[in-house]
Amino acid sequence: MPIWICKTCGAHSALNDAPPPHCIICDDERQFVPEGGQAWIAREALISTHVNEWSELEPNLIAIGVSPAIGIGQRALLVLSPHGNVLWDCTPVLDGKTRDRILELGGIKAICPSHPHFYTGMVEWSEALGGVPILLPEADLAHVMRPSEHIQPWRGDRHEVLPGIVLHRLGSHFEGSSVLEWQAGAEGKGALLVGDTMQVVPARGWVSFMYSFPNLIPLPAREVRRIAGRVAEIRFDRIYGAWSDKLIASGAGESVARSAERYIRRLET
């Protein structure tokens, strides 16, 4: 049976001869169903037309994206460490060359998606790489489109994946929206991989926070204040977002604090 991929968000459905009538990710008010209606494409139809592209962002951090882009167009980030490798976020397609290359690098110990919009091909990646655990916040399990025995729910606000690699549940975009703290990143100053739990914006050195980015639904001031307080407890100097141009190379902790203050001020004025 084929793997059906939502054309709008890249989510994989449970295996079936026919695509499902709805995508629960796109039906949610944080995403959208296009004017032309829900559409799916079989994964097999993409094999000859789409590939994974790699780029090294810094030592031991590799970006992997699908070209041409599918759905939201986010990238996955592969963190290499002496204790094992971790995949942050996921993409809708995994090609054979990428699978082989990851295995040559020692495989991965865990897949850690930031939130449901980037679950996409997480089960395919897990199975292709040997049944890798998929670590999902318990709060977001209702958004899983393709169930798997490899999904391992976690509770609370903090979960150590490997030494020096820590998940932090911040909420905001989704109740389980998370960031990944990579303590060895940024030359040992620490890097935060954020997906779009916080969105790096075009203005240099700023981020923003939204309940829905495509539909421009803001978060309340109290939520932004809470998130900023949590982030202030994490040591980091750099932020990597979900797309190639989403980077704050240094001073990122101060950037988050300053951005939260501006957001709250605008809401409360």
Rank of each mutant, 00 (worst) to 15 (best):
I3C: 07
I5R: 06
C6Q: 12
S13Q: 11
P21V: 06
H22Q: 15
C23R: 15
C26F: 02
E29S: 13
R30S: 05
Q31T: 08
V33A: 07
I41P: 11
L46S: 12
L46R: 14
I47L: 11
T49C: 04
H50G: 07
E58I: 00
P59L: 00
I62P: 10
A69L: 03
I70S: 05
G71D: 15
G73H: 09
R75E: 09
V79D: 01
L80M: 07
L80F: 03
L80N: 04
L80V: 04
S81K: 00
N85C: 10
N85R: 09
V86R: 01
V86W: 02
V93F: 00
D95Y: 02
D95L: 09
I102C: 12
I102F: 08
L105K: 13
K109V: 04
I111T: 07
H115R: 10
P116N: 01
P116R: 07
F118N: 09
G121I: 00
M122H: 06
V123E: 05
W125N: 10
E127D: 13
A128H: 14
A128L: 11
V132P: 06
I134R: 11
I134M: 03
L135Y: 08
P137H: 14
D157M: 09
R158T: 02
R158E: 04
P163I: 01
L167T: 14
H173Y: 15
E175P: 11
L180N: 01
Q183N: 05
A184Q: 15
A186V: 00
G188L: 01
A191T: 12
L192M: 06
V201E: 02
V201L: 02
V201I: 15
V201N: 03
P202C: 00
R204P: 13
V207R: 08
S208K: 11
F213Q: 09
F213R: 14
I217G: 08
P220Q: 01
R222M: 08
E223G: 10
V231E: 03
E233Y: 00
R238D: 04
D245Y: 01
G251T: 07
V256M: 11
A260L: 10
E261T: 10
L267W: 08
T269M: 11
